[in-house]
């Protein structure tokens, strides 16, 4: 394992542990205080309670926001994955002029302050006379999710041996049949992964939703509104914990699917010319 690189010193594992603590501590605090029997988020803890979770059940405003988030998430993940498939396939499969420029534009939101994307979209939407609604959030978040979908999908498509498609054609299958019987099943894990990742991003995304939402807030926008009221913090933490679990669950599924596919296909031992 040790390849003559600077050796693993004793300090490094300690540093890694510290780093992980830094990374995870703030996130683990949410569930801790969501079960704490006090409105203030202070130590020592005041005892176990589930009342903050119970209070969520009757919260119609929150439930409405959750439904909005679900609608937006499903639409965004579907739309951005579909657009991502087209672009990722074009970029990995074909050579054409402007390929790099096109890729650069699609990936640009990764390298832009989100507020500027949000503001510019807001101006266009309002200038076009559109009403702010869930639809405008969907349009905006799709722009934002595309780079992530593209990363997942291009990685999946690049591992795809082109001779598989040629083999299918050679064995008598049509172009469409080849896409259905070979391309789609082999890249399915990447597609699923892209759907899950973009849904997670949409669920948690705040800035675009904040700028582009009308009277129907998403969960993130709803939480933002609640943050002003200190008394509501624990129930927001409870909601946050549930969202956290959903996010982690979805991401884990995406990762497992992706890695199982990778294991299965990577050892396919494609010889290269």
């Amino acid at each position: 394992m040790n390849t003559g690189a600077p050796g693993k010193s004793r300090l490094l594992p300690g540093y890694v542990a510290l780093y992980f603590l830094f990374l995870y501590l703030p996130i683990l605090l949410l569930p801790v205080f969501s079960f704490n029997n006090a409105a203030a988020t202070t130590f020592p803890l005041a005892g176990f309670t589930t009342k903050w979770y119970v209070s969520l059940r009757g919260n119609g405003e929150m439930l409405a926001a959750a439904v909005n988030s679900l609608i937006v998430g499903v639409c965004v993940s579907g739309l951005s994955t579909l657009l991502g498939i087209c672009a990722a396939r074009a970029i990995t499969r074909y050579r054409f002029r402007g390929r790099r420029a096109a890729n650069g534009l699609i990936m640009a939101p990764l390298f832009l302050p989100e507020i500027i994307v949000a503001v510019s979209l807001l101006m266009v939407v309002l200038a076009a006379g559109m009403e702010l609604s869930l639809a405008t959030i969907i349009l905006g978040q799709t722009v934002f999710c595309l780079p992530y979908c593209m990363s997942v999908l291009t990685a999946g498509f690049e591992g795809f041996d082109r001779s598989l498609e040629e083999a299918s054609l050679d064995l008598g299958e049509t172009a469409f049949g080849t896409f259905r019987r070979v391309t789609l099943p082999v890249v399915a894990p990447a597609i699923l992964s892209s759907l899950l990742v973009s849904f997670t991003i949409s669920l948690d995304e705040f800035i675009l939703a904040f700028f582009l939402s009308g009277t129907e807030p998403t969960l993130a926008v709803y939480i933002w509104g609640q943050l002003r009221f200190a008394a509501k913090l624990p129930s927001v933490l409870a909601l946050g914990t549930i969202m956290l679990l959903i996010s982690i669950l979805l991401l884990t599924i995406a990762e497992v699917v992706r890695r199982r596919a990778e294991r299965r296909y990577a050892t396919g031992g494609y010889a290269h010319a």
Partner: peptide
């Protein structure tokens, strides 16, 4: 009416 054995064999992984 031709079929091919590819250099990579192109065995469908799924």
């Amino acid at each position: 009416p031709t079929n091919m054995v590819f250099q990579s064999y192109a065995i469908f992984p799924h």
